[in-house]
Design a binder for these strands. Structure first.
Lengths: 164, 164
DNA sequence: CAGATCTCAGCTATACTGAAATGC
DNA sequence: CGCATTTCAGTATAGCTGAGATCT
């Protein structure tokens, strides 16, 4: 009769069959785990890119990481304020800011690395090593397939984005 | 004038090795595809839950779908305004709103179903049928493993206390 | 001039918190 | 009373747009 208190605790079957729903849930859970350790995805991504690829302009960073130019400006303001990166005018092209890691940024990144590795482990806890590889491979193929979907910068790209 | 305009178009290797990054990218791409067809994840989920599980209170819907009580209120306001659901006071427990699909809501949902199926296909385009099954199975295990992580409502339900 | 870069103001969606009003 | 439900106000991250100033 009246709903038992926990009777509806499970999401509808239809949703569990939808890859888009599963992948969204998983991403949410990943983000929750990461947030609990104080990690912000964008922040980590920018620091990693600077370490691996060296100094870069803000626009290049944005293209590399699919981060909007606007968000990039705000994020680097923070980083600069905290002394993790330095922005200098690129003398070869004075429109650009050359962004580079400071020693403090490098140290902060090294600490984040360990946390990030721990988050991976927490997320994939129920999977074996082999299963993790399979999952990574499949996700990589999906992501690469849609990799060109850069809406942020590319001129001419327009979205419907309708409201009702 | 730097030799290769697209030289840095690829994200750092470290990020491609992180399941959390892959799953986030994939979720983003899924959402972009869905948004381009005018689908909102929460909206679809609520309608599906009402169809599969019948009328429910807002709180029950929220628990079922991991949607916050606050967002639920706003969403149902819209739905009610558009005539897709009806809210009536539950006479057995007058704190509750009984939410149910209207015929118009049922019709709208049927149309969404087709779009949602198309989105799944678009997202998983690069994968074979067998690979899609494997991906779904692995993601399901991950999501179920962290399933208890309902932060939103549950009074005592703290889940595997991940907090700091 | 066209086009790229950076910055700023502002928008939407999503996730989440605190608290008040009402009812059990 | 404690507790649940709904609603409202507000916060934070993320993704995104438009426009202006500056520079190639």
């Amino acid at each position: 009769m009246d709903a038992t208190p926990e009777a509806e605790a499970r999401a509808p079957r239809r949703l569990w069959q939808l890859p888009t729903w599963l992948v969204n849930r998983a991403a949410l859970q990943a983000q929750r785990i990461a947030n609990d350790t104080g990690i912000r995805r964008h922040h980590y991504a920018v620091l990693v890119a600077l370490r691996e690829q060296g100094p870069a302009s803000q626009a290049a960073l944005g293209r590399t990481l699919s981060i909007d130019r606007s968000d990039m400006t705000a994020m680097l303001d923070e980083f600069e304020h905290d002394g993790l990166v330095a922005r200098t005018r690129d003398e070869h092209d004075r429109r650009r800011n050359l962004v580079r890691l400071t020693p403090a940024g490098t140290r902060a990144l090294r600490q984040l690395d360990a946390h990030v590795d721990a988050v991976q482990d927490a997320l994939l806890d129920p999977l074996s090593t082999a299963e993790r590889r399979v999952l990574a491979r499949l996700l990589t193929r999906v992501v690469e397939h849609h990799g060109g979907v850069a809406r942020h910068d590319a001129p001419g790209a327009r979205a419907p984005g309708r409201r009702t």
